[in-house]
């Protein structure tokens, strides 16, 4: 599978720490992203799920260059872009876009939609001045908004419309890779569906690659081609969507999947065995030793309390970071 298409984005052992203060002379770090390796292939919709505070947004922001990585390497189309966004070449900025979660603060309230959508066009010199209005109209059409929106301000629009403008802005430079940071979580359900459908249509039409961040697992099942799950800054399990939902390996994945509320009988059948969720995600300033999940894990072994498991490919394309599936080590431990 990996040989068919090239990786558009490769993340190797990425770490993003934030210094939050000093306790007894030692600096305390929030280990928001703590050694993530991930590769995204061209044309796929990579789903990234995780609880609040698991570091999924930080991962996205680090990839975009908003935070300098503490360690690790980010490669985009074969180019090393580990440096912060200010040191990235303009064409990388053009090719990579992000849609933020909160449509309220991602659009400048003192600009009208035309000004907002013009900015990427101007910065990258995509169209001439005379054609600007025509192009903005075109961009608005791609997100199914009427050109009448051109002179509206974000304040006079609803959340869904604002999010469409955010998406339109991200697509204005004709990027190949778009990060969607919970693009629908601030919107009501009917608009969510509309936006998701639009995103998928645009993905197909423009041959886009998405990194789709959400905490909504049922949404993942419908749109992602591959899913990765994050816990305390690390990826626990990564598999194609089908495998991920059919045969989850990691106890955390099982716990999350069994907590999705179901409505119909068919959905009930799809549920894995019931695992009750216990506890809460620990503070990223004080990550437990060993496997970070061992405090909440129903299958905890002694090994888990002191040894951090490594990512293992259990079946082709299905990666798990858990001692239960690490055959060589599991032999010693049991």
């Amino acid at each position: 599978m990996s040989k068919e298409t090239d990786n558009i984005l490769t993340i190797e052992n990425l770490k993003t720490y934030f210094q939050v203060g000093k306790v007894k002379g030692k600096t305390v770090h929030v280990r928001a992203v703590d050694g993530v390796s991930l590769s995204i292939k061209k044309g796929e919709v990579m789903g990234l799920v995780g609880e609040s505070g698991s570091g999924k947004s930080t991962l996205a922001y680090t990839v975009m260059g908003m935070y300098p990585p503490t360690e690790g390497k980010i490669t985009f189309k074969g180019e090393d872009i580990s440096a912060g966004s200010s040191r990235r070449p303009l064409d990388v900025k053009k090719d990579m876009q992000i849609v933020f979660q909160d449509p309220g603060s991602s659009l400048n309230p003192h600009q009208n939609i035309k000004q907002i959508l013009e900015l990427p066009l101007k910065v990258h010199g995509i169209v001439k001045k005379e054609e600007m209005e025509k192009r903005v109209t075109q961009i608005l059409r791609t997100v199914e908004l009427s050109p009448a929106y051109m002179y509206k301000t974000p304040g006079s629009m609803g959340g869904g419309e604002r999010q469409m403008i955010s998406i339109a802005r991200a697509l204005a430079t004709d990027p190949s890779f778009v990060i969607l940071d919970e693009p629908t979580s601030a919107l009501d359900v009917s608009i969510q569906a509309k936006i998701i459908n639009m995103l998928l249509r645009l993905q197909e039409k423009n041959n886009l690659t998405y990194l789709f961040i959400t905490h909504d697992l049922s949404l993942m099942r419908n749109i992602a081609t591959r899913v990765a799950i994050m816990y305390l800054g690390k990826i626990c399990e990564m598999a194609s969507t089908h495998e991920f939902f059919e045969t989850p390996y990691h106890p955390y994945t099982k716990m999350l999947l069994s907590s999705i509320p179901v409505v119909s009988v068919e959905e009930e059948k799809l549920r894995p065995e019931k695992v009750t969720s216990t506890g809460e995600i620990p503070s990223p300033t004080n990550i437990p030793t060993g496997c970070s999940f061992h405090l909440r894990c129903p299958n905890k072994m002694d090994l888990c309390t002191y040894d951090d498991p490594v990512m293992t490919e259990v079946t082709p394309g299905h990666y798990v970071r858990c001692h239960l599936y690490n055959k060589e080590e599991a032999g010693d431990a049991v």
């Binding site: 900025k93 933020f100 909160d102 991602s106 400048n108 309230p109 910065v123 990258h124 802005r169």
Partner: peptide
């Protein structure tokens, strides 16, 4: 720290634009 400023930075807008077109109008 507002996302609209971050957006402008990420798309590659210049400092002049960010200071005077994104931030200043909101202070006026």
């Amino acid at each position: 720290n507002e996302y609209f400023v971050t957006s402008a930075e990420l798309v590659g807008a210049g400092r002049f634009h960010i200071l005077f077109r994104e931030i200043l109008p909101n202070c006026l």
